[in-house]
Simulated assay, not measured.
Amino acid sequence: MTTTRPLFEAYPQLTDTLPWLQLADLPTPVEPLPDIGSNAWIKRDDISHAIYGGNKIRKLEFILADVMAQGREHVVTFGATGTNHGVATAMLCQKLGLRCTVLLFEQPESKTVRDNLLRMQQFGAELKFCGTLANTVMRYYCHPQRFSRKHYFLFAGGSNIAGTIGFVNAAFELWQQIEGGVCPMPARIFVPVGSAATLAGLTIGAALTGLKAEIVGIRVAPSHLGVIPTCTVGTVHQLMKRTCNTLSRHGLEMPAIAAPKLIDSYYGEGYGVRSEAGDKATAKFSGCGIALDQTYTAKAAAAYLDSIEASGEVQLYWHTYNSRPVKFLDVH
């Protein structure tokens, strides 16, 4: 039987020490994709919540529990103008009665960007447009409330230690589904990588469960901001190290964990810029009834399709994009 907190079942000592709120609709299904190949499978995090799905909901179960446990009242985060993380954070903050501010940097316009801006507004977020990524990051780290006890500063994409633990828990969920015969053991699992918590958490979780699949991250965000690394093997590894240290302090015996695998070659011309390979993947998945976005999932799915074509082994694509329909209130 697959449950919502398999990590806690494996390590009961976490129950009283690691804050968690049930906010997602878990477990998410894992399904075959016969129109893509007999060895093709998908993990449907696009339906992780009835209103707005995607991979951020898993992270926020642990992040917002941490916010509440610390007695904070106002979450400040940042992302691109079409940030899925911003939408999910705004939605769940509204549900929990927390204030939410999202600092935004520009990305190429698309329907997803327009829809997500409206979603954030209607979920009550305070939006601050900061122009460039560099200016947004500066305003985040130099925020006047940085040391306020009421404010919680959440890194882009929900990629802090609590968010990463959300995907350690996700690896245990997949392990239960494999053990239950829902799907075969994949040779590789493909995920898009922007702020890194999904790749970091799954890599740690695979080591803890004994999941033999190789976790393959596809870089979809800039590798550096000037000379500062932002999406590299090193930055993923540092997040993994901090998360492992936290889990160790909670009483877990941590095994040796493989270095994260991060592929750069599908990034294309820039963040949020569509690619030819991504467009082909979008068309292919559309035929299966699965929607992709040009910024994240199309590029990861392109890598997955190439691997499917090159190998007869079972491959799993972890779908991180929301597929719930847009439902806007009448603002007139």
Rank of each mutant, 00 (worst) to 15 (best):
P255I: 12
F167Y: 15
R58Q: 05
A207V: 00
T282P: 00
C130K: 07
N39L: 04
A65K: 08
G251L: 14
T101Y: 09
A162M: 09
L199N: 02
K150M: 04
L96R: 10
G268C: 04
A125K: 01
I161R: 02
V331Q: 12
V326Q: 05
E73P: 05
I290F: 01
A170M: 05
E9C: 11
K280M: 11
T230S: 14
L103W: 03
C288Q: 12
E31W: 04
L239S: 03
I215K: 05
G79I: 02
V67N: 10
L117C: 07
R99L: 14
L316Q: 00
T203G: 07
Y152G: 00
S323W: 11
R242A: 15
P192H: 07
L18T: 09
M91D: 02
Y317A: 03
R44F: 01
Q121E: 14
V137Y: 15
D16K: 15
H49D: 08
R72V: 03
P12D: 04
H250K: 10
G226T: 00
A170V: 05
S311Y: 11
H319Q: 10
F78V: 08
S110C: 11
D46H: 08
M120I: 10
L133G: 03
T2A: 08
A197D: 01
I178C: 09
I257E: 04
Q176V: 06
A197N: 07
E309K: 14
L103D: 00
N39W: 02
L174H: 07
A65C: 11
A256C: 12
V87G: 03
G278M: 07
G37K: 03
T232M: 12
V273H: 09
D66L: 04
R188H: 13
F62R: 10
Q238D: 15
G201I: 08
D16C: 06
G217Y: 01
L239I: 11
H151L: 01
